[in-house]
Write a protein that binds this DNA or RNA. Structure first.
Lengths: 243, 243
DNA sequence: TGTACATTCTTGTATATACAAGTTTGTGGG
DNA sequence: CCCACAAACTTGTATATACAAGAATGTACA
């Protein structure tokens, strides 16, 4: 078949690239706004004179790039642009979400007592094997997971931790209310989501995320040690830092 | 054909997932170290009793997840694990790379005089339309792009900027040597790479990156305004922040 | 009226096949 | 010894086809 060769001759780039470019152009020009339903795989295949699998590839790659959202049985839609916002100063992500006019919800994956392994013990200033509270919570913005929070909390400083209803108030909010925090130690890094995080945040493993390690201290000692993971594609998170 | 149904019955997950899991397991167990050559598409297809396209899909997805690296004609290889390192304090990325025992190189994409548009003018404390120096440099770690640096520099405070050889010393290094910096204002965010950055960093558009805006000031005023973009998958970059 | 079901869309998975294109290796010929 | 070229790999692109599975819509029947 010479159709393949023809495409290569005319532009020296794969055919699916042309479809991607076309879709991008439509979105950038404002022709296709957010939530706009893009033509189906079959329609695009027909329009561009390619097979369904080629059109599908263009749609799939744009989905990976967070330009489109697909769902089986429904169709393919233009994704909402990622909002910008501050991050590291955020004390209560529920407020942050409410401030955007979105609905907040939480999914509690774990809330239990366990024993501290080395890393956690060091961070909390406890001896290895001490009892600690361990919680894993996923925070949702309009139903979409935007923060994975894994937290280890000192049972001596916050004894009532496990009795809290964290669907109402976030752990961070609760801690700032209960213990007067004097210091927050934060580390930021960019990582690829591991399997567990990917599953919880409903993103593909390997999707790059912003990971924040936060150690909150009160005058009595280290209260809590948290790992916060944000999918880089759902939120654009900023942080002002001064040296 | 019932083979498809059989797979669905046994695990209710697609067949390529099994191949992905297998490869992941081999890598995690240490059986397949970094740079190990993974079986070819045809080999995997035969081993798992699937078609080449299905095996290919597994390899492609793992490549997107930065677990594997592929190159046409050569084969598929286990990717090097992303190194961890500090970031925001880094003054000279060339030193940082040398400290890892890697080779440093720079690609100068732009080094010229231009006029400041609004955003840049505000950041540098100049009037709109003023002359500024504009440079775009890609920093390479062992030949692999790991930082995209776009910088606007004040010509009154650093008049010799354009005459520098930035393959020898980085702009940041040069600036700290020339102007005594009193303050550094940094903003961090996670973004998806745009087309220009993607091309420069040799990553797919949409790949999440750590983006850093940095405004360096001396006693005389704002010296430079830089935008640094790191591919989240090549480097694991950390930053210690204290509140 | 309303529920159950078939139809018809959509995207998702899987195969078989073909050729393009990049890399290495082996084989001759000069 | 070295160069040229063919062969044998690799991954990359593209097609045609089939069926699975999710979601909406219309239709027939109770």
């Amino acid at each position: 078949m010479s159709s393949q060769t023809t495409a290569a001759e005319s532009s020296s780039q794969p055919r699916y690239a042309a479809i991607k470019a076309h879709i991008r152009a439509q979105i950038e020009s404002g022709e296709w706004p957010a939530h706009f339903r893009v033509p189906s795989e079959n329609q695009l295949a027909q329009d561009f004179g390619v097979s369904r699998m080629t059109a599908r590839r263009a749609l799939s790659e744009l989905t990976d790039e967070n330009v489109l959202i697909r769902s089986q049985g429904l169709g393919t839609f233009v994704a909402e642009p990622v909002p910008a916002g501050s991050l590291l100063e955020v004390r209560n992500i529920a407020d942050e979400i409410a401030a955007r006019g979105h609905s907040y919800a939480a999914r509690i994956l774990k809330l239990e007592q366990t024993v501290a392994h080395t890393e956690v013990a060091v961070a909390l200033g406890l001896t290895e094997g001490s009892v600690v509270f361990h919680s894993i919570i996923v925070h949702l913005d309009n139903g979409l997971p935007i923060q994975f929070e894994e937290r280890y909390t000192s049972p001596t400083l916050v004894p009532e931790y496990l009795q809290q209803d964290f669907t109402a108030a976030t752990p961070n909010e609760y801690l700032t209310r209960v213990a007067p925090l004097t210091e927050v130690d934060t580390t930021v890094e960019a990582i690829g989501a591991d399997e567990a995080v990917g599953k919880a945040l409903e993103i593909k493993a390997g999707t790059a995320c912003l990971q924040i390690w936060r150690r909150t201290k009160s005058s009595a000692g280290t209260v809590s040690f948290a790992r916060l993971v944000h999918p880089g594609n759902r939120y654009r998170l900023g942080a002002q830092i001064r040296f």
